[in-house]
Design a protein around this nucleic acid. Sequence first.
DNA 1: CATGCGTGGCA
DNA 2: TTGCCAAGCAT
Length: 343
Amino acid sequence: MLDWYDANGRTLPWRARPGDPPPDPYRVWLSEIMLQQTTVAAVKPYYRKFTERWPNVEALAAADEADVMAAWAGLGYYARARNLHACARAVTSDYGGQFPETEKGLRALPGIGAYTGAAIAAIAFGEPAAVVDANVERVVARLHAIETPLPRARPEIRRIAEELTPRKRTGDFAQAMMDLGATICTARNPDCTACPLRAGCAAAETDNPAAYPVKPAKKAKPVKRGTAFWLEHEGEVLLVRRPARGMLGGMRALPSGAWEEAAPGLADAPVAAEWEARGTVSHVFTHFALELDVVAASGLTREGVEGEWWPIDTIEGAGLPTLFAKAAALARAQRRAQREDDE
DNA sequence: CATGCGTGGCA
DNA sequence: TTGCCAAGCAT
């Protein structure tokens, strides 16, 4: 695996060259949090933006949480951003700005679980930690043609991964396994002819290696409906901050009421007004799909309106999650169209 | 241990 | 078009 990695490992902004000294633990940690359930391509621009703006853990700890949340907008799973900031503050205040070097110490920090703790310990500190992510699960399940479905197979997969983990170049080994899973032993179309582990792989002997790991069927996603309210006053639009827990927690948003099976209409409008339909945004979340009707009105006053007024011309800087960025784009497009009609 | 939590790309 | 998937964590 290490020979294969030396010749075929990916070059990534947060990664040292094979055999080089370990990279900055701050950068390893930041990249690992961003990469949770997220593709390398999606992470790259965010990693660049964060490291330029906050080049070390103390700088990130000193930032306002609202700025960190806004900078994360679009990357998804927003609890990660809140935990990222909390972790930076914990490392700065409790550890003098130095990350703990053991899996156990790392695991106690917010946002760092079994995988991320092991990955940082191995990649940044050379600890012989067993790094088991979805790539490693897939590679191991195929090596042994494990018929037990996930998640029940996890204890067995972990035991095998621990046996495979070497004592030296632990970070390179972990990244080698993940690169193999990402480039050769892929979920849908594994390229067994190019695989360095083919000789010892049980799944490669079958007619369908992609059948491993065995997974349970997924549930169908329900469709919910909601209404978002675009309220303008003197070139500014009303934004609110969503509750810290739950969907899009802690993010700026357009006011919108409950999302339910039945369309809520104007029931949760922030003010009484003549609302005009501006269209519907479709968006798919992890466990449901949403049809969000966008309605708009111009407020005569700001009296009694809860929220934050944001200049419409700089709405991109508000850090809206993608759902509400789509809704805002729709509201503005319709607004331009209406002005042109008026002329 | 099951569930909730984003987003964009791809077959 | 639709479903699946990507370096998981918290509860």
